[in-house]
């Protein structure tokens, strides 16, 4: 998969949140996004996922243009913002419900995803009783359960303990091994440098390649 972001600009209520962004990303790589709060990392992720319409420019995947040939990338797994689920159902039931839309996986695959993120598939507790870290893990399970070709993770380490962070790092590297294209935003530069093949620094909607603290 080749994801091309060409001269993408997004203006919301007069504010330019993405400014002439041009990137080229390939499968089997991890692309890290690093920048201050409000710099535009999440907006780019939303644009790639199809949650927002860009003002200018285009996003193509393997030559097919978003909003012309497709709306949402095929094989997309995303975790953007704090994940929210149906509060009166268990984690498994929530994922089961979502998996019914594409019907690409079975119950066993959902269980495996939950085990991978450190959650118990047979846990009878409703997600209402989940802590922040548990909800984050469930959100990651939701993103990886359908064997995504494109994985978009916004602050996946939020709320996780040390073991959880290690598990998530392991998952990201496993998905990379499987050939997924991973876009990862994180405030921890060290984690990002350890995981990413390319890091982009984001400042006021502009993206530039960042290597060893130098542009």
């Amino acid at each position: 998969m080749i994801l091309k972001i060409e001269n993408v600009t997004k203006i919301i209520q007069g504010a330019t949140v993405l400014n002439q962004v041009s990137l080229c990303m390939e499968s089997g790589n991890i692309y890290g996004l690093f920048g201050r709060n409000g710099s535009g990392k999440t907006m780019l992720m939303r644009a790639v996922c199809g949650l927002i319409r860009i003002t200018e420019g285009k996003i193509t995947i393997d030559g097919a243009q978003q909003w012309k040939d497709f709306s949402y990338p095929d094989g997309l797994g995303m975790l953007i913002e704090t994940p929210v689920f149906l509060p009166d159902y268990t984690g498994y039931e929530n994922l089961r419900l979502l998996s019914c839309i594409k019907k690409e996986i079975k119950g066993e695959d959902i269980r495996k995803s939950l085990i991978r993120v450190g959650l118990e598939p047979n846990d009878k507790r409703n997600t209402r009783k989940y802590s922040l870290g548990m909800r984050q893990r469930l959100g990651i399970a939701c993103a990886i359960m359908e064997n995504p070709r494109l994985l978009v993770l916004d602050e996946p380490f939020n709320g996780l303990d040390a073991d959880g962070c290690e598990q998530v790092k392991h998952i990201i590297l496993e998905e990379k091994q499987k050939g997924a294209l991973i876009i990862l935003a994180c405030h921890n530069r060290e984690e990002l440098e350890n995981l990413s093949d390319t890091i982009y620094k984001v400042e006021q909607g502009r993206f530039s390649t960042f290597t060893d603290g130098q542009k």
Binding site: C49, G50, L51, S71, Y72, L76, M78, I80, E81, P83, V84, L98, I101, K102, C142
Partner: peptide, 8 residues
């Protein structure tokens, strides 16, 4: 958070 939307 648009999880169902991106699956359509």
């Amino acid at each position: 958070n648009g999880q169902a939307l991106v699956r359509t």
